[in-house]
């Protein structure tokens, strides 16, 4: 479904990623490990469309997102993303945040979809709260619901648990895995904690091993 072929990303004249390949099947959850600054976040940003490629191409569902010639802007890619923290819109309620990407639906359909997602993340009844009135774990669940709302085929997780404590992040990792599987959504998780990858992903690897295509399958 997602096919990344021989990409190179250059930042300040230094290649961050070089001849990087990755294939992900529909509904598959893949983890990429590595210390900060190794280029794993850059990979996600290249897929989402926030950085441009120097070489190679990225295809999603047989459509080219970007190569050396064409560049599809992030808003047209239909790829969801969940960030570390502070990415919820502070001026919108929980419901407003989740509904942000649902511009193509009419009002009724939109409310229905928001309600579905609120139940999915078990925050129904909290739709009128503002982000700062939620706990860290609740905020990340809302961020996930917001990314899931437009039904993307792929969601990117950029260290989503780094601002949460260990017990909560492990709990959330399992929960998010279940949600993704229920929605049949593929995902890439970028983290520096092996345990999170074990709990959430179908397979994971350190970024260096991805080059050599060495993966660890999880029992999950």
């Amino acid at each position: 479904m997602l096919k990344i072929s021989d990409i190179q990303v250059v930042y300040n004249q230094t290649p961050i990623l070089d001849q990087f390949n990755l294939d992900i099947a529909a509904g598959e959850i893949v983890g990429i490990l590595g210390p900060s600054g190794c280029g794993k976040s850059t990979l996600l940003r290249a897929i989402a469309g926030f950085v441009e490629l120097a070489k190679g191409e990225i295809c999603l569902n047989n459509a080219c997102l970007c190569d050396c010639q064409c560049f599809m802007p992030p808003e047209k890619r239909g790829v969801g993303m969940v960030f570390q923290d502070n990415s919820l819109f502070p001026h919108l309620t929980v419901a407003g945040n989740i509904a942000f990407g649902l511009t193509k639906l009419n009002k009724k359909e939109r409310q229905k979809r928001v309600q579905e997602l609120l139940e999915l993340i078990r925050l129904d009844g909290m739709e009128d709260r503002y982000p700062h009135e939620l706990s860290g774990g609740q905020q990340q669940r809302v961020a996930l619901a917001r990314a899931l709302a437009p039904k993307p085929s792929l969601i990117l997780f950029d260290e989503p648990f780094s601002s949460l404590d260990k017990a909560l992040s492990e709990h959330l990792a399992v929960e998010i895995r279940e949600l993704l599987k229920k929605q049949k959504t593929a995902a890439i998780l970028v983290t520096h904690t092996q345990r999170e990858a074990e709990l959430m992903c179908d397979r994971y690897a350190a970024l260096n091993d991805v080059y050599r295509n060495i993966w660890i399958d999880t029992a999950a």
Partner: peptide, 20 residues
Amino acid sequence: DTITPSMVEAARSLGANQQQ
């Protein structure tokens, strides 16, 4: 200063163009 880069990126990945 309260608008973080990830808010802007989240909005764009949710389909918001420049005007939106």
